[in-house]
Amino acid sequence: MNASRRDWTIAFAGIGFAALLPFLAPDGFVMHLMTSVAIAAMLALGLQMLLGVSGQLSIGQAAFFGLGAYGAALMTKEAGLPFLLALPLAGVIGGIASLAMVPITRLRGPYLAVATLGFSIMVYLVLKNEEWATGGSYGLIGIPRPELFGFRLRDPMLWYWFCAAVAALTYVGMLLLQTSRFGRALHAVRQNEDAARASGLRVTLLKSQCFVISAVVSGMAGALFAHHLRYLNPNDFTFWKSIEILIMVVIGGVGSLAGAVLGAAVVVVLPELLRVVGDYRMLVFGAMLVAVMLVGEGGLAGIIGGLWRRAAALLRRPRPALRSAAE
């Protein structure tokens, strides 16, 4: 019960910070980058749902992301649908695609991971070769600017707020899910699948539901991404993208929603900050990843949690000392 109150405090502090950010740094590039962080955060939350909550490792998240992105782009560009309709529909596309994964949710560990990888390779090849729809390797050009109720989101600040709000809703939704009966059942599945099955939980159904939720969130992130860059290319939806999402979750801390968001921020922002190092940029980035993994298994969430506990302990310690001085 206590832990839950702490989670809500962190959530609202984070959302408040995200809402106020444009006033702290009113700069086009910062807004652009923070919008990318919001989109990445949704992807990381989607994978956290799979890996951290139900214990399923997917290295094919880029597939749902890509399907959502291309789906939404085609809906607004070719079919002229309003953006606000394309956004949930992109989630539906991701969700439907993930139903293809239902048979493989019976797989465990590395077997499941490789199956998801296979799926993402298939999606990449479709995006690259079905030129009539996707523009093939040239990419999809001229995606319209997102519109809300006939109002164009031209200002990067408004667009950032919109994406941050969608990410915040996702976060709150996942937090509610995690503490619900459904979430507790998933925890049971993660900790011991056989025991969960023996207790009467329908393990395969739970895992499949988890896959669908994760894919819906990734598909919606895709819709935001398509209207963020307004140019799509299959090269942005390769195996590397899935690995990036996995890095976000692991570096942020497997199992922690706040960690997933923090991990997304690190993976998006750090390489940009490291541009000053020039050619050694990705080398330094890699070294930093190794360093974080060495310091704590719980990722950044674990490290920060540890520091917090230690700070709290330091604050508590002086009290007996004071008392002894008074005596």
Binding site: G139, L229, Y231, E272
Partner: peptide, 13 residues
């Protein structure tokens, strides 16, 4: 492409 877009935004703004 994604990186090229990010860099261009930074150059411009």
């Amino acid at each position: 492409p994604e990186e090229a877009a990010n860099i261009s935004r930074r150059f411009a703004s």
